[in-house]
């Protein structure tokens, strides 16, 4: 279980998180929704330790996220970045097998390559993609390579940062289906941030609505349409009028 308790984070005078509290039960898929600039990515980076919160606590399976062996902690995570964040200088298979070629999970290059090709196949890419450079791939293919890298070491927890941004609806659907399948298949705990409502319905077990640095509503995805929460209602229906100001 991942538990965020009263997380505050400011960048200069810009207070992004103002006491965010959220629990993500083990083996479930939580989707955090909210407008641009509401702190979704910041929350995710706080859990990973990429950003240090100003106050509050983050527990992963009951242990503080910032204590203990950092490498062992990070080895439990996989992450799909918004833009893919693939390493330009490395061919696709080395991107996918990056974690398997270094550190505690290191294995022979041949074996790492085989695993990479298997993971590429899992996300619907052919083996001939393996030797290409990321710049030679389309946006959708890069996203799938990023997904293959996120699952390469079979992590217990997977984060997806806006997995369908910039993709056409068909490719977005493919990515959503893949994420759902992989999370169910691996039994992983997943945390996705997005403002794509199609993704929310495809991926989520539970959703949380983040606005103004705090969670306004959280619950099962099935209750989303009848939540009675004005923030969530406005967001999921895409209305300009409501408690969320259109001009931020």
């Amino acid at each position: 279980m991942i538990k965020l308790d009263d997380i505050h984070k400011a960048f200069g005078s810009n207070q992004v998180l103002r006491g965010m509290t959220l629990e993500i039960p083990k083996g479930t898929s939580m989707v955090i929704i909210g407008g641009s600039g509401t702190g979704k990515s910041v929350a995710l980076k706080c859990i990973l330790g990429l950003i240090k919160p100003d106050s509050g606590s983050i527990l992963v399976d009951g242990k503080p996220a910032d204590s203990g062996d950092r490498d062992a902690f990070l080895a439990r995570f996989g992450m799909l970045f918004q833009g893919g964040a693939l390493f330009d200088s490395l061919p696709v298979w080395q991107n996918v097998a990056f974690r398997l070629m270094r550190g505690a999970l290191k294995r022979p290059a041949e074996e790492a390559r085989e695993i990479a090709i298997e993971k590429l196949r899992r996300v619907g890419l052919k083996p001939d993609v393996a030797d290409r450079l990321p710049a030679e791939l389309s946006g959708g293919m890069q996203k799938r390579v990023g997904l293959a890298r996120a699952i390469a070491a079979e992590p217990e927890i997977i984060f997806f940062d806006e997995p369908t941004t910039g993709l056409d609806p068909i490719m977005a659907g493919v990515i959503n289906d893949l994420i759902r399948e992989i999370v169910v298949e691996m039994g992983a705990t997943a945390m996705t941030i997005t403002h794509d409502m199609t993704s929310v319905r495809a991926i989520a077990d539970n959703i949380a609505m983040l606005h103004d640095g705090v969670i306004k509503w959280t619950g099962p995805v099935g209750q989303m349409d009848n939540s009675g929460d004005p923030y969530l209602d406005q967001f999921i229906h895409g209305r300009a009028e409501g408690p969320i100001e259109a001009v931020r």
Binding site: L48, L74, A85
Partner: peptide
Amino acid sequence: TMKVTEQIDALVTLST
């Protein structure tokens, strides 16, 4: 460029 495109963050999440 690696920093702007989150490749540095990706390195950290890959325990590097």
